[in-house]
Nucleic acid binder design. Structure first.
Lengths: 338, 338
DNA sequence: GCCTCCAAGTGTTACGTATAACTTCCCTCC
DNA sequence: GGAGGGAAGTTATACGTAACACTTGGAGGC
């Protein structure tokens, strides 16, 4: 049969179909109406099929000077949420003929390796989570179009930002707890420097401060179940009146709080209420099911991709935070009557 | 806002350093010892730094005819486990100057879109989970080197396979339960056609059949907490003697079983024991903590990558299943005395 | 003084593709 | 019967890089 070992090129297809390489490019690129006759086009397509021809992407990318490929930089840890982000981004990308390549910034210690060295695909642009901020310096070095997810609009050096309306989520949580009668709250905060966590603390403090006689204490923990358990135990065994509710920066922290409370013999929600943020699968796996804020990860990814496409086309993306929704489940109730 | 309209090329660097493009290529490619003097080399490096030069990967890939990039095809659903697989594979890849690109096969209905169209990077090889098997036909069409993860060695059409020793994990679970005195077991099976699940059923049945007076019933559920809850409730309210233990195909199914048992008013492990498989974060978030089989996802990824590198170099990879380890926690105990 | 050898480069080419510019042939219209 | 025009292609080129083959200017050997 044909020459083996090496992949067939468009020239091989051309030879097999008895036409020039240019004709093959026209036909397979779907730009042949009025330039190549239908029978000839069919002959080319048949030859391509017979040879199992696949265009060489490196060559195409070089020729076109663009790759229709975009990099999504995400933290390696919180995988469930960012799987949703990827799904949404990839869907929108596919609609526009783009591909998405993931760069999970390694969760080990130390700064992320250069994402461009690691994700060796040639790229048109980058979407980056602010939680993978250690990779950011590398990225800014390049002049690649960049969209930041959940990043401080003021501190993003001119990059476009797409944000979930976390502040509103925290507002909903706070109103919910205040409405139930809670006044002493423990804030179980993620021990990760990131704007998206800063904003939680700020909003919670502001909302609570607006009501007289309230108090917010803060405990910091790494984002892991064990870390959260330890921090919660320490906070609750400290002197002073016990909080009647724990507001957690995310669902994983809430799962850790559950374990601490169980150890301390406190019942949820009778003795103490707990809230999360994310609405992961975890939230309905634990008992009682967690009152939390649902973040629509896929919608987040879709908006991120759309923003990047806008930047690539020279428009400025339309901002506007993505709404989030409180989901009330069994982990919150009025505080115990003393 | 110096919109440098085009990215600098190696020719620009050459011009800035007063040398030829070839010299730039030699210096930056680290192949210059004895070919370029040290002062000149330093001038080139400085010019590259000044201009912010980054080699065009499309051009390099085209020239070299290889990309040092590998595709990892994973199912979009079970993200935590495959995050670990990615981490391990990426670590080994980096040691050999390779990059890894993820293709999470879309979890929607219908066959996966062509991964090569979607992950538009040019590729040297592919590692694919058998759980993303719907993408497999596309892959086999190409002649790309392929390594399958957790796939039937006999049915993989000659592709190399790397497998966890799931059979041994199930054996350990079964011995554990038999040792505690359990004789009637419910197998909560994943309703997903995949060799890795088939093997669980086969091994469980074989081990139980070796002991007289035992019985295995099977319930099938999609891999979701709600699906597992429904299936478990149905199985436990069916007529006949109630099983004293539930063996789940993975941890997520076990979480669903927990919810069903709580609804039915059955205590774990006093009334009924439960086991999982994976050892996700979920396993220690639920109460009581889950007895399960720890799969070392990172080690799995490392072995997969090593196997692919071997194939790329023309060797045949050394097979041998990856060991797994039973982790006994609070969800298993002797059956209740009647 | 001539040959050889080596260091330190330069000139050139090919990788596979997409497309602008050109050619050829044939048909139509005045 | 010549001008014009469209259909159906082909030829030629550039994208940015890596590497082979070649040049040049001395230093050293005999």
């Amino acid at each position: 049969m044909a020459r083996s070992s090496t992949r067939p090129t468009s020239r091989d297809v051309a030879h097999a179909a008895g036409v020039s390489q240019a004709a093959v490019s026209l036909v397979l690129g779907d730009k042949w109406r009025g330039r190549v006759s239908e029978p000839t086009a069919e002959r080319v397509r048949q030859a391509a099929r017979d040879l199992g021809y696949r265009p060489n992407l490196a060559a195409r990318n070089l020729r076109l000077g663009r790759t229709r490929t975009v990099l999504l930089v995400v933290p390696a840890l919180t995988t469930e949420f960012f799987a949703g982000v990827y799904t949404g981004a990839a869907r929108v990308a596919a609609e526009h003929g783009f591909g998405v390549v993931l760069y999970p910034s390694p969760e080990g210690i130390g700064p992320a390796r250069d994402p461009f060295a690691s994700a060796q695909a040639a790229l048109d642009g980058v979407i980056a989570s602010s939680m993978a901020a250690d990779a950011l310096t590398d990225i800014r070095g390049d002049q690649l179009p960049l969209v930041m997810l959940d990043s401080d609009p003021a501190g993003s050096l001119g990059a476009a930002t797409v944000n979930l309306d976390i502040a509103d989520g925290v507002r909903q949580v706070t109103e919910h707890l205040l409405g139930l009668g809670h006044r002493r709250v423990l804030h179980l905060a993620a021990d990760v420097p990131s704007w998206t966590f800063d904003i939680r603390a700020r909003e919670l403090a502001a909302r609570m401060a607006a009501v007289p006689g309230t108090e917010v204490r803060t405990a910091r923990a790494p984002i892991s179940i064990d870390g959260a358990r330890t921090a919660t135990e320490a906070a609750l065994t400290a002197p002073g009146p016990r909080p009647t509710a724990i507001v957690c920066d995310d669902d994983k922290l809430a799962a850790g709080a559950y374990k601490a409370l169980r150890r301390l013999g406190l019942r949820i929600p009778d003795d103490i209420s707990v809230t999360g943020l994310d609405d992961l699968a975890l939230a309905t796996a634990i008992d009682p099911e967690l009152t939390t804020v649902r973040l629509d990860a896929e919608l987040f990814g879709e908006h991120g991709m759309r923003a990047l496409l806008a930047v690539l086309e020279g428009h400025s993306p339309d901002n506007g935070d993505i709404p989030v929704q409180l989901v009330v489940r069994g982990s919150t109730a009025p505080p115990p009557t003393p």
